[in-house]
Amino acid sequence: MDHIGVDEEGYLLNLADWTPELANTLAAQESLILTEMHWEIIFLLRDFYQKFEVSPAMRPLVKAVSKELGAEKGRSIYLMKLFPGSPPKLAAKIAGLPKPANCI
């Protein structure tokens, strides 16, 4: 972890540095232990970014989760439980993606 550069807020400086192991470390720094439920969101986010080259804010994230993982999970309350505070920001950080722009 020592040689991996992150910015002041903890986002990766070089997105190519990301590995699943690194995600565990990044999560630990946020006092999170990643479960299967976290991982499916993390991979969904990485897939979203791969496809569209943008980190989604809350609404598009909820919509994408709903489409891929079903309406039960596509709710902000579900995402809030997994990634407290701001799910799009926290999940993007752990998934090694840029901070979503103008995220509320």
Binding site: K51, E53, K67
Partner: peptide, 15 residues
């Protein structure tokens, strides 16, 4: 620059 055309398919998620 970024592959901006890729965003087109993502617009539906932004309504």
């Amino acid at each position: 620059g970024k592959h901006l055309y890729k965003l087109l398919d993502g617009l539906e998620f932004y309504d």
